[in-house]
């Protein structure tokens, strides 16, 4: 084993020992440290108004630990600057839990999924798209109506490919998936550009579509999109922890099961479109 690996293993062992202590109720004072974006509603923000903030508060209460946030824009380098970054003021890492990552995410170990959503189309009620109830309806609009549409999409999302596949390339208004500005967040595409009439429609990830379609002056409609051959619109979302910390992951898994009903409530409160039955939740499933 190279010295490098040896060092890393040593650090890993140390942190697992510490986590073992956390798990012990008698050592209750270490805060629950969450890695989060300070400005990305409906997920999280510094004012703790996001649904991930609410779930984190639920967890902290259940664990009887204080809640502490490490804020960093959720961009390139987020995981390595937060979850995987050694802390400066204590033994361990800057934070120990990311409240949302896709199931099977490569950069972290993932817990069981706790919601399953899909991309969604959002547009203003009473305007050009009132008869659209599905992706298929949009595709089948007469050319004269389709050709005038301006549809805002983020450049790396499946929405781009979907529009390309269906001959809607000229309708694409492209946005960068990651803004370099930590003050910008994807929801602004709906909150501002759609609300202010610069777009006829926008396609975003479900939680963003759900939350922002209920904000603002204009009445908006949300149509969740179904995955089709070669285009995946739906994703299951889990929580992220470091690799090599199975006890901590299992503890979060247990919390996710214990708090399923409350979590489901929170997701509904934020109008997040849910697919299938990952969250059996309040209906008594």
């Amino acid at each position: 084993m190279s010295p490098h690996n040896f060092y890393k293993t040593g650090r890993l062992l140390l942190c697992c020992l510490l986590l073992g202590l956390f798990a012990n109720e008698s050592f209750g004072k270490q805060p629950l440290r969450i890695c989060a974006d300070p400005n990305n509603l409906p997920f999280s923000n510094r004012q703790k108004e996001g649904f991930e903030n609410k779930i984190a508060a639920l967890f902290a209460e259940a664990l009887d630990r204080d809640l502490e946030y490490i804020w960093f824009p959720q961009r390139m380098g987020f995981i390595r600057n937060t979850l995987k970054a050694p802390a400066e003021n204590h033994n361990g890492f800057k934070c120990d839990l990311v409240m949302g990552v896709p199931a099977g995410f490569e950069l972290t170990a993932t817990t069981r999924p706790y919601y399953h959503s899909s991309y969604a189309l959002v547009f203003e009620k009473g305007q050009r798209l009132d008869d659209v109830r599905s992706a298929f309806d949009l595709m089948m609009l007469p050319a004269s109506r389709r050709d005038e549409l301006r549809i805002g999409v983020f450049d790396r999302t499946p929405a781009v490919k979907w529009l390309l596949n269906h001959g809607l390339i000229d309708q694409i208004v492209s946005y960068q998936t990651m803004s370099g500005d930590p003050n910008r967040y994807p929801g602004e595409i709906i909150e501002k550009d759609l609300q202010e009439g610069r777009l006829d429609a926008a396609i975003t990830w479900g939680p963003i579509a759900g939350y922002f379609s209920q904000q603002g002056d204009r009445e908006l409609v949300m149509v969740p999109l179904k995955s089709e051959a070669g285009i995946r619109f739906d994703f299951k979302i889990a929580m992220g922890v470091r690799y090599g910390e199975p006890e901590w992951r299992e503890q979060i898994d247990r919390l996710l099961i214990e708090k399923e009903a409350e979590i489901h409530e929170i997701l509904l409160e934020y109008n997040i479109p849910l697919v299938g039955s990952v969250v059996r939740g309040a209906e008594g499933g």
Partner: peptide, 13 residues
């Protein structure tokens, strides 16, 4: 094939 996640949006990268 890899699922990525940036600024709160998942996609296949």
């Amino acid at each position: 094939y890899e699922v990525e996640y940036k600024a709160g949006q998942p996609y296949v990268g």
